[in-house]
Amino acid sequence: MGHRDPRRLSRRQFGVLGTQVSGAVIAVLLGIPIVGFLISPLFRQQQAVWRKVGDIAGVPDGEPTKFEVAFPQDVWTTAEENLAVYVVKTGDNTKVFSNVCTHMQCPVRWETALHQFLCPCHGGLYDINGANVGGPPPKPLPQYVHRTDGTTLFVQNRFTEEI
């Protein structure tokens, strides 16, 4: 083989190259749609929906009260999903919390005896203003985007801050 011009492909090298190129073509043609398919849900904007929570005139001052609101699941299923909404009134101020812990997203609950929100998973604690005051949660309790119409509360399936 030594007598050949090294700049020219030998028949054998050509075969190698052809095999590799064919493999690469197949891999790319397969890979693009699959990767796209995998990550496509990430680029779909979640639809923001307003839902009525109810009349909050009766919510006592300084005592978080739980409501449940159904939201669409935003994909093929028509079944809706209930989410928990904690309404907290302190004086004139109304806050609307979710029950999602900012640590690992376990369901937080209001403990009257402790006067705090407790996360049963790893003992995270939030005070009545949602501040993370104990245990592992790194951020305050998430709040829903909301508006009131008189004493009727509406929330969106969106938090004011990403968690």
């Binding site: 402790l114 006067h115 705090q116 604690l125 005070d127 501040a131 005051v133 104990g134």
Partner: peptide, 8 residues
């Protein structure tokens, strides 16, 4: 009479 937990 457990003291209530406070911010740590």
């Amino acid at each position: 009479a457990q003291p209530t937990p406070q911010s740590s």
